[in-house]
Amino acid sequence: MDFLRPAGWEEALAAKAEHPTAVPIAGGTDIMVEINFDHRRPEYLLDLNRITELSEWEVGEESVRLGASVPYTRIMENLRTELPGLALASHTVASPQIRNRGGVGGNLGTASPAGDAHPALLAAGAEVEVESVRGTRLIPIDEFYTGVKRNALAPDELIRAVHIRKADGPQQYSKVGTRNAMVIAVCAFGIALHPETRTVRTGIGSAAPTPVRAEAAEEFLNAALAEGGFWDSGKIITPSIAKQFAELASGACNPIDDVRGTARYRRHAVGIMARRTLGWTWEQYRGSGRTLEGAA
């Protein structure tokens, strides 16, 4: 095993080009577990800790350009207004110690369906900025996850940042685990209201081979809200709409039975979370000038 310590981003890209098998390590919260437990012995470890720009973010007009290594703790503390869904998701990540080290780049790089950030990114709308010596490209989040623990990165590419749309409406995030803290998701659900476009987007974690959006549920809800004039009236969403949205969200799952939970439970729980988080976000939307921050 070789330990590569690039001092800057260009050097890191060059190293990745030269050693496409190199495994990037930033927070280390995934890769070090695999090394400690003898599950993986990469040829090269590519340390990204010294590349300061990866731990920085810029708040733009439309979106936040979030460096791949910005720790979850920073997101919770500093980006609750711009990225409320992701801030809530960040708060559910593992433990305070892990949140101090881990960042969204790690979740995306590992692309585990259980990664906590994914549903929030899917719901908010995001693009992953990846770069290699060949150049930079932006991958829409909907095209990023390609299979179980697989993503759209080329072997020579590194994740530089994520461009996440700033919230234009309330966002929520829920995750089921069998412990009240420090737990891997049995399943998770993210929702974002986008009043500007009068659309709702969602994200589901740990209930399919990849993180997915509940597209049928979104389409149904978008149509129902438009038809009923809900965006203008701010009326309470009728229980039947909420129920159908929840059922369709359940239906978007393609889960498995494993030690953390049954497939049936995952489908069921995603439906409950979909109904509840829709209720919470809609309540926030109905009140004018109410905070966009999550409750946690």
Binding site: I25, G28, M32, S95, P96, I98, N100
Partner: peptide, 15 residues
């Protein structure tokens, strides 16, 4: 200054 799990920090990262 930041509390972290030292088991998940690669030795080379603390240079």
């Amino acid at each position: 200054g930041v509390p972290v799990c030292s088991c998940l920090v690669a030795a080379g990262q603390v240079e």
